[in-house]
Design a protein around this nucleic acid. Sequence first.
DNA 1: CAAAGCTCCTGACCGC
DNA 2: TGCGGTCAGGAGCTTT
Length: 281
Amino acid sequence: MPELPEVETVKRGLTAPLLGASLDHVTLFRPNLRYDFPKDFASRLNGRRVLSLERRAKYLLIALDSQDIWVTHLGMTGRFKVHGADEAHTKHAHMALHFSPKAGGGSGQLSYIDPRRFGFMLLLSPDELYQATWYASLGPEPLSEAFSGDYLYEALKTKTSSIKALLMAQGLVCGLGNIYVCEALFAAGLHPEASGKTIGREACHDLVVAIKAILSRAIEAGGSSISDFAATSGELGYFQHQFSVYDRKGCACIRSGCHGVIERRVHQGRSSFYCNGCQKI
DNA sequence: CAAAGCTCCTGACCGC
DNA sequence: TGCGGTCAGGAGCTTT
């Protein structure tokens, strides 16, 4: 399930083949993912050149020389795969794109594969993107300086929702999903159901440090490969082997001196994993 | 307005 | 072995 480190891994993997490349021919194998593909999607991509690839939150932003920005969200199981131009597409491939790399050397193919189809793609002008409510309401990037302990403390002090729900909502800080929120809350010693406004300034500082550290380590590891995530080369990330709590129900807490056990509990339809010894409300 | 609930989808997994 | 039921989960939308 792609969160910030997985999308960052995809962006880095796509940059070498796609930056400066010409998009020669787009084929859609169905009319929609989570939403319909944009009207004229293929014709607006065909013949364009890629000017830049960026990531914002969990969105991949590919700027084209037509001024359009091709926005992709990978949802739960979306992934891009770069492969040979003649290679047949696999099951659940919903889009294929033949491209000519900037450096020459023939052509390649980019496939978008998404079994559950929770992903989606948009094609927007910069104004449309920046003015879109969903985009404008994204919180700061967690790895930016704007995301500080003081910022988090000020943002939390009026919130009654649980810290877990707040961190996952994208408006306070973006890019986090269930896995990295569970891991960060463990690292900071905070209970997932603790109300936002009960978290003090020092704990906010610790939490910010934990979030930045975990995301950085996960990016270095090429993300976490659970569910279907893989890099564009097909290579798997390996951060899932470093989880402290996620999917470790019943395991002993790894924190030295803690004799707690990892519990799994569902709140708000999402599973939380936390240590019953060192993560107190 | 804030917060909680619902919804989309299909592969994996479980119990019988 | 096969079948049906349940679950996972991002984020926009709806309801409270």
